[in-house]
Design a protein around this nucleic acid. Sequence first.
DNA 1: TCCCGATCTTTACATCGTAAAGATTAGGTA
DNA 2: TACCTAATCTTTACGATGTAAAGATCGGGA
Lengths: 242, 242
Amino acid sequence: MAKSETKTETARRIRTTSPASRGRLRPAPRTASAKAETPYHHGALREALLQAAERVLEREGLAGLTLRAVAREAGVSHAAPTHHFGDLTGLVSELAAIGFRQFNAAMVSACDAATTPLERMLARPKAYVAYAQAHPGMYGLMFRTERLDHSRPSLHEAAEASFAGLANAIGAMRQEQISGDALTLDQGAAIARAWSMVHGFTTLLLDGRLKDILERLPKGTTAEQLLQAMLTSTVTPKPPGC
Amino acid sequence: MAKSETKTETARRIRTTSPASRGRLRPAPRTASAKAETPYHHGALREALLQAAERVLEREGLAGLTLRAVAREAGVSHAAPTHHFGDLTGLVSELAAIGFRQFNAAMVSACDAATTPLERMLARPKAYVAYAQAHPGMYGLMFRTERLDHSRPSLHEAAEASFAGLANAIGAMRQEQISGDALTLDQGAAIARAWSMVHGFTTLLLDGRLKDILERLPKGTTAEQLLQAMLTSTVTPKPPGC
DNA sequence: TCCCGATCTTTACATCGTAAAGATTAGGTA
DNA sequence: TACCTAATCTTTACGATGTAAAGATCGGGA
């Protein structure tokens, strides 16, 4: 729907070749951030594009995150991003790396804020789900997009840090050191269980697939309460099945 | 990359208005079953398009599943699908409904085949992951696409059946009847835990995000073994955390 | 001072989804 | 049987997107 803008792709940043306009645009290079005059070379387009991309993502969702939309948002020509990111995969991967860093920071600060044992146990999962709810576009970008190039150092590193944080948290819970190069089946199962549970819960929640459950729960039960119950309730013995 | 075909969009099914070319149409102009030669109105385009879409999906992945590609695969003009499905969302939603039915059938037959108690407990999750591994494109379509219209009766019904099967399985494990309209927090938590765990495991596995774990496990450990360990190992007490 | 290369813009092209108008046929009706 | 309406399929057209390539513009040395 909101795609009806028929602006001839030359939106803002009118740059005439007339020499008369030269002097007006020109200086303001150093001191104050006088970027209001759209400098000829912009100076920090890469960062500006990433910020624009984040705005577009949160405003229009994953489907609206296009190279041209980002360029429009940043006020540059539609081909400008190419020089900084190569292609859409490049931009999207760099943005996902930023997302992972935000995400990791959120979990670290949540852990730091926890005091009681119960809080310490639930801090991470709660922060995980809370981040995804607060930044659904970014979470989708990080975990459900196919256009990610995980071989990019920045993305690989940020995603790896996320995994390491998880593994360490599990190790701490099990009161054992998790070495970086080898895992027992039990350790791997514990990590996979924790990650699968929280990640699965998050994606199902964002997709609205938990609505059916939430509606049937006692009135007023929130997703966070369901998460907590899911994580704390003991697993009952399950003889029959299917 | 493999998108460099510059066939002028009129690929097969050359239908000139010249009456002379009538008899010579598409495949072998032979056989008594005259249905083979691209009939004027096709007769069963809707089903043919769905089958073509499934082929395209499994062959080219989610990104390759376009209206035009499906039309090409079925040998009709690019606008033909519109009349049967409205738009891409329509086609994709109907295909996802088919996927859910396949998916449900796979789990039912896996349950039927289970004999021992352990098998009965693991039959469903294993079938879940196995289906996703066998049909990654379809699973992605069902659970990670945003272009799904869950208000379509066929899709809604098939997806609902999937959820009902899960809830019933959990109820059977807990040896209690799960009523359709109300759940205790404990029941909801059990359902959410089971679904989140298996769905999360599946998406992480398909995205290659469990590779790090699998590589560090004892040599030769498979994803299925990790899944089983994750589902069966008892949850250890977890005093510290974060 | 002058020129090279990095940065950004223009232009161009193939593909996609979708709408609208034209062609073709099936099936009911007179 | 002959026709006629509606469903089905094709053509044509338009705006949007990603990407490549060529042109313009400037920063920073030589």
